[in-house]
Nucleic acid binder design. Structure first.
Lengths: 263, 263
DNA sequence: CGCGGGGTTGACGCACATCAAAGAGAGTGG
DNA sequence: CCACTCTCTTTGATGTGCGTCAACCCCGCG
């Protein structure tokens, strides 16, 4: 496995390191490596040679996942960190009697499984919302290699720190806001995150169902639906099915902030 | 600075490394070092000698903080991680027009400032709810010393990972639950966290105001008050002022779970 | 073609916010 | 020691946002 002979990081855009078994639908929208949260770690692993003492197969690139498939379940021992390359995922907390509680959504370029790092097991289930592909960093193999991996550690710290900061930004909008504020914030948040992955423009698609959104935001799916049509009637967005077009992002943002735009 | 001559970790219980300038009220309840989230890092720093290349003053122990005092404000550049030794803190998001939004509470043994690690600045303000004391790990000085600090990094990873996992557990109960469920869960959570710090029994004290709790849980302070008296009438707890006694923790927990105990 | 799951829309009721006012401590000064 | 204020808490009365239930619609799939 001659990783060290691979081309430099920016050249990777060409897809030269795409392993044969994957990329089942090459035309699907996929995040570029440089927009991926895992990229800092990928780079380091790319440059590490056989003499680094790293066991091979630490990084599995672009595995494809079918819609509805779970890449791990609540309680599974923590093995890997995943990065979404294309498609999208939800993380959820299965509740014995009743519908699952949706914890979060994961878009291209974002990580899945971070919450398991310290606990040693996953605290939620991750399920694909559509045909997707992921890269997998096998942490277990990383610690197997006795090697300290100091530079990698710095990357992991960075990555965990960002996750903490991100969670933090999510907490505020979810509480104490009206349904309209939450949904406006949600739409804008999804848009912004898609853009961050180099995807999406004013026109993008929400891959999750209304009840997923509702569960995530703490609202009934009917309320989500009602508010969205209300937004549409106001000319803030155009929504049909899962397709969303931001017609007036600024007024939508004002809405998310204060609950009333240009009152 | 002969740190390396200090006694071993468990002996620290005796308080031999308490610096002179602090501990203003020796009789206040204080978390033991071994119950502190920062302890793993403290230990490492304790054992590091002058030859480690560490600049002195990285760890400031037991600084006292007055009630209402802020240890950092939103937007301040990230400098330090703090651990609560005694007392308690709230983190909040100041909103220009209107009351501040409370993000979280921090009890003895817990960390403050973690969300600033990656961003490079604090995303919220941390304010003491009562006379408190803290230990401060000056991260800026840590990176100043060019030294890799590999073992410390492992500690930091652990610590960040735990934070992520903790945030994760908080998300679910806050959404989609009735006021009664949230408050029951909140009381139990506070109790459990105090116990984890070696403090608290069935009888403990909530240092934050009703409006702080309300802001945190997304409820009006009146609702918090009402529900608490309701719990009291049901014999689940005894509450007067900030004092709480758990009378029937099991039924309270059942309440937090399903909204109705022994229906 | 009929079926089934997700989405939309309407009617109704309740949980909780809001407004208001009175009560309870804690600190201050006479 | 008692009035005083200030803040926090409690309690009541009233309104409303959103959950719930139910019916219907739409689109994809066998």
């Amino acid at each position: 496995m001659a990783i060290k002979t691979w081309p430099g990081p920016r050249a990777r855009k060409a897809g030269s390191n795409c392993e044969p078994r994957s990329c089942p639908e090459g035309e699907r929208k996929e995040v570029e490596c440089e927009d991926c949260s895992l990229d800092p770690l990928c780079l380091l692993l790319d440059y590490a040679g056989d003499d680094s003492g790293l066991p091979p197969g630490i990084l599995l690139r672009r595995q494809s996942v079918a819609r509805g498939e779970s890449i791990f379940r609540k309680g599974d021992p923590f093995r890997s960190l995943f990065a979404v390359k294309s498609g999208s995922f939800k993380t959820l907390n299965p509740v014995p009697d009743g519908p699952d509680q949706v914890i979060g959504f994961h878009l291209p370029g974002e990580l899945i499984g971070v919450e398991g790092v310290a606990a040693g097991s996953y605290s939620c289930t991750a399920r694909a919302l559509e045909p997707s592909s992921i890269c997998e960093l096998r942490m277990e193999r990383l610690s197997e290699s006795g090697r300290p991996m100091e530079i990698l550690q710095r990357g992991i710290i960075e990555l965990l720190g960002k996750e903490v900061a991100f969670q933090h930004t999510l907490k505020t909008p979810l509480i104490r806001q009206s349904a309209e504020q939450r949904i406006a914030a949600f739409i804008l948040n999804m848009h912004q995150r898609l853009e961050q992955g180099g995807l999406g423009g004013k026109d993008f698609t929400l891959s999750m169902s209304r009840s997923d959104i509702g569960s995530y935001l703490g609202l009934a799916s009917e309320t989500v639906s009602r508010v969205m049509t209300r937004f549409q009637k106001m000319g803030l967005v155009t929504i049909q099915r899962k397709r969303v077009i931001l017609e007036d992002p600024k007024r939508l943002a004002a809405f998310a902030e204060s609950g009333w735009p240009t009152k």
